[in-house]
Design a protein around this nucleic acid. Sequence first.
DNA 1: GCGATCCTGGCC
DNA 2: GGCCAGGATCGC
Length: 284
Amino acid sequence: LVKKVFFFFFMPELPEVECTRLSLQQIEGLTLKEIILSPLAPLKKVQGNTMRSTFQGLKLEKLKRRSKYLIFVFEKDISLIIHLGMSGRLRYYSKKAEALKHTHLKLIFNNGSQVHYTDARRFGSLSLSFQKNFSDNPLLDNLGLDYNDPNLTFKTYLKACRRHPKLNLKSLLLNQKIAAGLGNIYACESLYQAHLDPRKLVEETKDEELKKLLQAAKKVLKLGIQQGGVSLRDYLNGLGHRGVMQNYLQVYGREGKTTLDGQGQVSKIVQNQRGTWFCPKIQL
DNA sequence: GCGATCCTGGCC
DNA sequence: GGCCAGGATCGC
């Protein structure tokens, strides 16, 4: 039972990553004493020894987020970049704590507090950057603007969308190079809010409809952050608190039921090996 | 653009 | 045992 309570899963999209970031802000300003890596840590283009020696003794200036990446910015613009993949999670402890199974990284600060990164499936990644704008990190450099970034204007978005006429709208939303931050849940919810069929191709979609889609995505992500993320299975933020966004999902996971607002029946289809939930009555 | 693939764990 | 899972990359 105890194991069950403490063993949680966390498969994050932009709002869950943002809420994790917000919940960890108290570590800003702390100095890193030590990094401990597991042999299976999902390192991307960096050696464990380099990782350990790079950060030791550096002050953590700022915790940032870009799309679904958390960025620990240390002094001298040296950054540790974490992607949580499907099963990654971060957890803060005020003092030494027993590591959960699949803990791949521990950040241990001078005041004794720690942050643990665990990831059962290891779809996540740990990487580095030595540039202020992270342009030396290919994972970040190839991303489109975040959907909730005020700099993502409709004009920019439309141009990016029109480069992929044959893409269906669901795949469009999940493509992080066009615009970043949406995952399977928020993509389904955005399409619902925009009243658009996930199977519709970009070339069949009017400018006006793409505008609605962008607005819907911004709205859904904002709500997700406000509600502390989706704790549908067991998402917890860095302090172990649940979000309540699952109580606002209109279509995701509701196959065979009505939409949350009761406007119609929800269907499930599979697109690119991912489930898509939508309401055919409303989404055209 | 699409399908296979990387992994572990929970649930039926 | 088989299927499913909040992600992203790689090769065709």
